[in-house]
Write a protein that binds this DNA or RNA. Structure first.
Length: 274
DNA sequence: AGGCAGGTTCTTA
DNA sequence: TAAGAACCTGCC
């Protein structure tokens, strides 16, 4: 199907924004997205239109929400005053087209547990290994290329520590193993967590072994769509130190601090050559 | 070849 | 409560 997109959407920028690890820019110009047990090939056709290999019904039922099209990122960016905050203004221009996807909380929790002290390519590899090891095959693109869904808590909980370790998880093996078991047992209850206030949600996430402030914040922002959550990684800390020595104006950007974080992250990494 | 990587936990004072 | 060490291993 072909559809019109009037708000910001830049597939390449989102693919490189560090919020998703199963987006692949293909040689044919399409971006392949695997989300949970869904997948999509999508590309920009022209300035106002996108092309995707799914039905209108499927797009409306799943992908419209996934891309967060009900939110206007143009409007959010209007909160930035170029006089007051020239750095963020510049970062937002550079990052125009980034959106905060509505991804699955479970997938985000595990992905960001894995992310600690790993480079982005290494994170992607580890996640693909996990999906191949435990996930359900969802489609065969070619004889060699089978796509796998992200494993369910039950599927992950069934793996042995040995199998998890073979996915390249290193010392995160035990974190993933325990999170999978807790989720499979219902001790981690994502439906209940959806109902929680931001602060309560954060506290619940940080109770999980292997989950500290950073991983909790990423899970909140990318998995629970808490747009005010502001993950602080090494890059963002550098930004705050160099660009905002007198303090960053969090209150000015509520409740969208997480969106601004994405602009700054993407801009700063782009500037410093990866 | 060898250091470093989107953090968290554990230990020690 | 705060600072420092230890942790696995794939990547560049």
């Amino acid at each position: 199907m072909i559809f019109t997109c009037s708000d910001d959407l830049d597939l390449e920028k989102i693919a490189g924004s560090g919020q998703c690890f199963r987006w692949t820019m293909q040689d044919n110009g399409f971006c392949r997205i695997i989300a949970g047990s869904e997948h999509l090939h999508i590309r920009r056709k022209n300035v106002s239109q996108l092309e995707a290999d799914c039905s209108k019904e499927k797009f409306e039922a799943f992908w419209y929400r996934y891309f967060d099209f009900q939110e206007s990122y143009k409007e959010i960016r209007k909160k930035i005053d170029p006089e007051q905050d020239p750095f963020l203004y510049q970062a937002a221009i550079y990052g125009q087209g980034i959106r905060i996807l509505r991804q699955d909380p479970w997938e985000m929790l595990i992905s960001f547990i894995i992310s600690q002290r790993k480079s982005i390519p290494a994170i992607r590899t580890a996640i693909e290994n996990l999906c191949r090891m435990a996930g359900t095959a969802i489609e065969t693109e070619s004889e060699q290329n089978v796509l796998y869904a992200f494993p369910t808590p039950e599927q992950l909980a069934m793996l042995t520590a040995q199998q998890l370790s073979e996915c390249g998880l290193g010392y995160r093996t035990e974190y993933v193993r325990r999170a999978a078991k807790a989720a499979a047992d219902g001790i981690i209850d994502f439906d209940r967590m959806r109902q929680m206030e931001d602060l309560t949600l954060e506290q619940s996430l940080e109770c999980i072994y292997g989950v500290g402030t950073k991983v909790a914040n990423c899970t909140e922002l990318f998995g629970f769509h808490r747009l005010n959550s502001f993950p602080r990684d090494v890059w963002i800390n550098r930004v705050l130190e160099t660009e905002y020595p007198q303090g960053y104006p969090f209150t000015a950007y509520e409740p969208y601090n997480g969106v601004m974080q994405q602009y700054m992250f993407y801009f700063y990494r782009g500037q410093s050559g990866r």
